[in-house]
Design a protein around this nucleic acid. Structure first.
Lengths: 207, 207
DNA sequence: TTGTGTGAATTCCTTCACAGCG
DNA sequence: CGCTGTGAAGGAATTCACACAA
């Protein structure tokens, strides 16, 4: 189970499996097969079995998979069998909306700190979190030992703030700013959310 | 240049090329090579050349690519050489933040209509757009001939609203709701934005 | 029978390496 | 020279198909 040799493309599918299985469980379904799960997600049954076989043998021949069991295994594999504290940097429109988004709490992540550099916002609250001054960010994140940050600042300062996050000991950044971050890939993971890239993929197929 | 045989994985990279080239142009750089572009993005020069060669010959041997020219070609290929009208459905925290996000306007997309079912919101404004009643959505989208929708409604009603969007003639949905939409893939394109899936990919590599 | 886990076969994607042009 | 565009080679990912267990 050496992490380095699991292809990233497989890792990217595991959260989809987990999400789907959690939904099925909520619907009152407690067992499934690779076929049924694949039909829901839109991929082949063989692919699901191959992917899961990288991590262990979670199914029973003739029977399929126990959903609670597979959910627990996937949470362990993805390290979301605990709650991760997250810092949110930038509390403009988007940052505020994310801070109020309830889903994070239910699925392994808890926003525990918010930062902004706007004096008009510092000291005000988003939900029940007080917005703190970005000037204190490095220190505050380090002493709280936070490893994950969501970045919702303007593109013009995103790189600078990301550099500060690295100094603070953060090892994962979810980047909502519309710029590619230049980061040392060996010490930090970056995921980029850019809705325009996704819209442009779709317009390719449209007239 | 038959669309069906261009792999989706290549189409997914084109908007990244476009975004990067647009940024370089803003920086005052007007020509580049596959090597330089690849270094910025973090992929190989050969891959960029192979990808672009699917659509034509845009470079000059010994010289590289003209950035304005390649930007124009990519916009044509991706059909963002025009402005697409977009409908936004769901004007809660997230929808409101998206409606106010300025980037869309600069990169080929214009939000022209907003819908919500909450009587307290209908008739109020987000930016300069008046929120309309979801009950009128199908008719309004159809008569405005809008083909792209962004979906920021609660997961519990996302499937129902998406079905309505199909009835309204929409052919592309950018889905922010935390559920997989079940759609006829031959008539509609769906892209899903789920920050939790991306966070969970990163925690896989963390302790 | 059903449905897993897995080698083998296949398909798909990326990289190599170089002819050829400016 | 420098750098593109592209066949050929190599590598990765997916799918097939079946032994085997419940």
């Amino acid at each position: 189970m050496n992490k380095v040799d699991i292809p990233a493309i497989i890792v990217a599918r595991l959260p989809i499996y987990l999400e789907t299985l959690e939904l099925m469980y909520k619907e009152g379904i407690y067992k499934t097969s690779s076929r049924e799960l694949g039909d829901r997600i839109g991929i082949t049954a063989a692919q699901i079995r191959k992917d899961l076989s990288q991590f262990g043998e979670f199914g029973k021949q003739g029977t399929g998979y126990s959903i609670p069991n597979l959910v627990a295994e996937l949470r362990k594999i993805l390290h979301v069998d605990k709650i991760w504290d997250v810092a949110l940097v930038g509390t403009g429109n988007l940052g505020t909306a994310i801070a109020r988004y309830p889903e994070f709490n239910h699925r392994g992540f808890r926003i525990v700190m918010c930062f902004d550099s706007d004096p008009a916002l510092i000291g005000t609250k988003v939900g029940d979190i007080t917005i703190e001054d970005s000037a204190t960010m490095i220190e505050r994140i380090r002493e709280a030992n936070i490893k994950i940050a969501m970045l919702t600042v303007p593109g013009s300062i995103a790189q600078q703030v990301a550099d500060d996050l690295v100094k603070a000991g953060v090892t994962a950044i979810l980047n909502y700013a519309p710029v590619a971050l230049n980061m040392p890939p060996d010490i930090i993971h970056v995921q980029h959310i850019d809705p325009i890239l996704q819209l442009q993929q779709m317009t390719y197929y449209m007239d």
